[in-house]
């Protein structure tokens, strides 16, 4: 004779098992739906392939690059300025360093920049935007949005110049410069998404039944606003890399011998047009990364677009 409480527990466990299985089914269903929407445009898939390849290369740089030691201090003037060949598919630069390896490591530095900036910028911007949007019309809204107006009006380049004039130019400082000027975009996105959801009845219901405002903002409303934010985040990978490269190009970012793509473009620009490979390959790499993430971003946007029927 099993006691009643134990019986109930095992019945519940059975139910949980059944429900757990159905949860896996649900995830599979969601992924199927996302892929259906994503792959409507074949270019998105191309973008995904390009982006994934670049990220993989960046992560595996020490293994994949043919001459990893060329990524730092290395001089071999005998090998300097060799045009592209089997031994050096992207040629060598004025110090004899293999351009291909430096480009691969350059991608790594670019993605490190992104991996530092975006995780700082996105939560800050989104949190502030959600607060401003939920309390739309109040002082909080005014303060946050005007603050974002101030920061968004300063171009990242100018901000980097300002910081560099006070401290040494470096990779870290260019990260700070980009971050400070970038968060307002996310604040604005979150602001408009949240303030448009605010009057939906599920929000009103949560307010009436006494849910805490913080919970409402971040657990009820925000999950419905992820579309534009994720899309922008994907596109921003390309943009941040571009801005970082621009800063390095003018000397405000990574300093030599760091194999930053922008620095490489700058160094090689003196060697045009004779030794074109020293500039062109890093520049092309920047373009390809941006292209890849832009196409990927289009696909991400499609995932959040409901079908029309």
């Amino acid at each position: 004779m099993v006691s009643g409480a134990l019986e109930v527990k095992s019945m519940q466990e059975l139910r949980v098992e059944r429900l757990k299985v159905s949860r896996i089914e649900l995830w599979k269903d969601s992924i199927r739906k996302w892929w259906f929407r994503f792959s409507k445009s074949p270019l998105s898939v191309v973008g995904f392939a390009i982006s994934a390849t670049c990220v993989a290369l960046a992560i595996l740089a020490p293994i994949v690059a043919p001459y990893p030691e060329h990524a730092g201090w290395y001089i071999n003037l005998d090998e300097a300025l060799q045009p592209p060949s089997l031994k050096h598919p992207f040629g060598t630069d004025h110090y004899g360093r293999d351009v291909l390896s430096r480009v691969i490591f350059g991608m790594r530095y670019s993605f490190i920049l992104v991996a530092v900036v975006l995780p700082l910028v996105i939560p800050t911007g989104v949190i502030l935007g959600v607060l401003a949007g939920y309390f739309r019309g109040s002082l909080i809204d005014y303060v946050i949005m005007r603050l974002s107006d101030i920061f968004v009006s300063v171009p990242p380049l100018v901000m980097a110049l300002a910081i560099a004039s006070v401290m040494k130019p470096s990779m870290i400082n260019s990260m700070i410069a980009v971050s400070i000027t970038w968060w307002p975009w996310y604040a604005r996105l979150a602001y408009s998404a949240v303030s448009s959801q605010k009057n939906e009845y599920y929000v009103i219901y949560a307010e009436i039944t006494g849910m805490s405002k913080l919970r409402i903002m971040f657990r009820e409303i925000l999950p419905n606003c992820l579309g534009p934010i994720l899309t922008k985040a994907t596109l921003d990978v390309g943009w941040v890399i571009l801005v970082g490269a621009a800063l390095s190009f003018v000397g405000l970012g990574a300093q030599p011998p760091t194999p930053d793509l922008g620095t490489m473009v700058a160094e090689g620009s003196h060697l045009l047009p004779a030794s074109w490979w020293v500039t062109i390959f890093p520049a092309m790499t920047i373009s390809i990364i941006i292209l890849g993430f832009n196409l990927l971003g289009d696909g991400i946007k499609d995932i959040f677009t409901e079908e029309r029927y």
């Binding site: 939906e200 009845y201 599920y202 009103i204 219901y205 009436i208 039944t209 009820e220 999950p223 419905n224």
Partner: peptide, 17 residues
């Protein structure tokens, strides 16, 4: 708050999608 409840007209918008 628990004793007085409401059911809204449009269930698609009164339930968090």
């Amino acid at each position: 708050r628990n004793e007085i409840q409401i059911v809204f007209q449009d269930p698609a918008s009164s339930l968090n999608p």
